[in-house]
């Protein structure tokens, strides 16, 4: 009776963990959904300004970042498969690649934002306010949506780092790996949201 520590329940249910993660992913999609609604409304109201403002963004950088995220989604999926096969070294390698790709994404983002800011284009800046209202809204949405997305990349990076550590010390292994799988799901979500942001800001001009 007294063997339980603080609480009795030692209860493992991987299926439950996965359902929980999927539900959490719904909430994340809806969180971004609010911003997508705002984007849709203001694009509808300012079609010309949104068209012209989108041409200000660098499609090359956007494309590179898209490829980076897609590849990182692949590497984390491969990491999940390889831990299930019990290949710890390969898992650690794949997780490292995923983290490096995420960091490269952030570095690109840094230079992209930095470039815009050095041109005086950031929320509430005089340069931006001198442009049309459509521009103000477009760049407002650009910073809000890619910013919130970048925040998710950072959170994902921390999570993957924790997973790396747990694989390394063996607490995630070929028998118990639902945490890594869920982290992969989260990372795919971050990837998926970018797949929507990329055309909305860079491609539709």
């Amino acid at each position: 009776m007294e063997q339980h520590s603080g609480h009795a329940l030692v209860h493992r249910d991987d299926e439950a963990s996965k359902i929980g993660m999927w539900l959490f992913i719904f909430t994340e999609l809806l969180l971004f959904g609010g911003l997508f609604v705002v984007y849709a409304v203001y694009r509808h109201l300012n079609p010309v300004a949104f068209h012209l403002a989108a041409e200000e963004l660098d499609v090359t950088v956007g494309t590179i970042n898209t490829v980076i995220l897609l590849v990182s989604s692949m590497t984390i999926a491969m990491a999940t498969s390889s831990i299930k096969l019990g290949n710890k070294r390969l898992t650690l390698l794949l997780l490292s690649i995923t983290m490096i790709l995420a960091i490269i994404f952030m570095v690109n983002k840094y230079f992209e934002w930095g470039g815009k800011i050095s041109h005086g284009i950031y929320p509430n800046s005089q340069t931006l306010l001198d442009l049309s209202q459509g521009d103000v809204l477009f760049f407002g949405l650009y910073y809000a949506m890619t910013g919130l997305h970048a925040l998710h990349i950072i959170v994902g990076l921390v999570i993957i780092a924790v997973m790396f550590f747990k694989v390394w010390n063996g607490s995630i292994n070929n028998d118990y790996n639902v945490q890594l799988e869920n982290s992969g799901l989260y990372w795919h979500l971050v990837d998926l949201i970018w797949i929507f942001l990329f055309p909305l800001f860079y491609l539709i001009t």
């Binding site: 109201l45 509430n124 459509g134 809000a144």
Partner: peptide
Amino acid sequence: LGIGFFDPAKGGD
């Protein structure tokens, strides 16, 4: 940040 989404002066609604 004064981002302007809901500020009529900046085109927000």
